[in-house]
Nucleic acid binder design. Structure first.
Lengths: 338, 338
DNA sequence: AATGAAATTGCAATCGTTTGCAGAACATAG
DNA sequence: CTATGTTCTGCAAACGATTGCAATTTCATT
């Protein structure tokens, strides 16, 4: 019943040679007589031998595995980041462990604890919204396990960082609305504690002031989560204001919730109000009207992050921390085409 | 710079006791003198010691980790399955490795290879659409690593299986359309090679024949992927047929694509055609009209699968393979309310 | 047949941890 | 001061693999 996996020892016993010989034969080491080598390799194939991962990890003090800590799984942007990471990792014979923190600080810490002890050779992390304390990340660098942060990066940790140019994205999204003739542009963003949202907001402000436009406290709403439900509630008041003719939303979900509210208030999109979202969720192209948005290079972010991390793993303590800033792409659809 | 993690050996050396004593002291073994125990524990805390995961795995021949192989990450149903799995696993001090096969047989096999050798104590798997060959799964059971399949299960492997009652779901979804007065109900489903789609289809057929309704070859379309794009193309012809007054779609994405086509053909939903989808993606509630759908108990599927697997891990070779069938819930929204 | 070099092979340490067993240190009783 | 028992500690093997070094075998040459 219990077919314990074949070890090098089993092969050695059956062939009446030493463990060392088997080990060398499997590595095709010419020190071993050709005939023995062949016999070992044949038997190994017959028994479907493959070396014990744990034993190798212990011996080599490396696991050939990198960890990812990410706040959400069901997020098309993160999914493309993961795909980028996996493609690079697999091509270099590394495996990937994904932990989703579910935007919870506590879960992020427990995931870190689970990963830190000899389980991974390096970490790719995107901080949760809740995270204000960074010790669990510092623990990694203290142990010589390199980290690369992406998207929501941690300034307090000395490491590589890959970010989206959120400031520029916010700036260009707002500029686009202005180019469509909007003069009174509102802002509906995710949690302002996140750097990415501060940057998007700053871009928005810059675009306005550059064009001599004003904003108003009433037109600016920072939501707690950036979710659809949150947006429905938070944008209620905003969407009732008749003065507004444009809206820059920090996520597509927020854009969608605002559009629902605008519609409910009897406004037509984009005729009365032009709307642009952020992240290019598939829903933004499927909805009617289709929603203009900012496309983030998720896949590229993933590949770049993984490449940097693997470089650091293979050649520890030589690279200075690098920060890469990736550019976005404005996708114009119906919701902002006046 | 390189802070190699403290080992039991370091503590032993500093305290001038043996490694065994430290090991026992950390386990709070009363064989060790209370004062020594305290000294060891204090030093361990000071150095933030935690045992090397790899060494423990090797010693105990268990990794306290379970693997998940899943075809897609960005899928709300799978995400809730994963959440269920994680909740159960974490509560029993197990970790989770997620591998997304991206619906590729090849990737599924390479993920299996990566997981099989002493990396995980058990596997939770949902087969990709492409998978026709099951050896990579049989390898697990051959080695005594238990598997639990969920959703897309593999009949060829003797293991626990958790499925959705797709037959009943298809039956009830179609019944619902009939109850709304539909008489000519079309079927737009995902790849027919998948058992789940065969079952949904069979449920659809049963509901029709039970109500004395007919179907027509023209009204039945099996798509290759079940994606929105695929649906747009595959449902083109179907949605042009004037005879049709109802549609049961095998995914919400397919429902959405058909609705777009119906609209383009000048039909109104639900007045002219009532539509119901499958899986309760968030888009189905956000779209206008909101789309009726079948809600699958993903979280429950995850917890049940993980519980069975952990039972099997902790008590090998005692349980007979069990098959659990979970019931679904029809969510009626605008798209099917005549 | 003896010698030496070349070709093979195996011993043993190592990675970090646990644990059975043997033995040391100490205390108490006779 | 010896005998006996308690309490505590450490050696060594084990998990599965790799690898430097030493030992053995093989074979050609004299």
């Amino acid at each position: 019943m219990k077919n314990a996996p074949v070890t090098i020892k089993d092969i050695a016993k059956e062939l009446e040679v030493s463990i060392s010989t088997v080990s060398r034969a499997l590595a095709d080491n010419p020190l071993v007589k050709a005939s023995t080598r062949k016999a070992v390799q044949d038997l190994a194939k017959k028994y479907n031998y493959s070396p014990n991962f744990t034993a190798l990890s212990l011996k080599n003090n490396k696991t050939n595995t990198i960890g990812i800590i990410i706040p959400q799984l069901v997020h098309e942007f993160f999914a493309s980041v993961i795909r980028g990471i996996e493609d690079v990792a697999y091509s270099q014979k590394y495996n990937v462990i994904i932990c989703s923190s579910n935007e919870s600080y506590e879960r992020e810490v427990s995931d870190s604890k689970a990963l830190i002890n000899g389980r991974i050779d390096g970490l790719l992390a995107c901080m949760s919204k809740e995270t204000k304390n960074y010790e669990h990340f510092i623990d990694f660098t203290d142990r010589g396990i390199p980290i690369v942060f992406f998207d929501c990066v941690c300034k307090a940790v000395e490491s590589h960082k890959i970010l989206i140019d959120d400031f520029d994205a916010g700036y260009r999204a707002t500029k686009h609305l202005i180019s469509q003739g909007c003069e009174n542009i509102a802002y509906l963003g995710g949690p302002f504690s996140l750097q990415i949202n501060q940057n998007r907001y700053a871009g928005y402000i810059k675009a306005l002031s550059e064009s001599g436009l004003n904003t108003d406290d009433q037109w600016i709403v920072h939501c707690e989560t950036g979710s659809f439900e949150d947006g429905l509630v938070s944008s209620k008041e905003l969407t009732g204001l008749d003065s507004i003719d444009g809206l820059f939303a920090g996520t597509d979900m927020l854009a969608l919730s605002a559009i629902k509210n605008f519609k409910a208030a009897g406004k037509s999109i984009p005729r009365d109000v032009a709307v642009i979202g952020f992240s290019n969720w598939s829903i933004s192209s499927l909805y009617e009207p289709s929603i203009s948005t900012v496309d983030q290079p998720g896949y590229e972010m993933g590949t770049k992050a993984a490449e940097l991390l693997l470089k650091d793993i293979k050649n520890p303590y030589v690279m200075k921390p690098e920060t890469h800033i990736l550019q976005t792409n404005i996708i114009v659809r119906d919701s902002s085409s006046k």
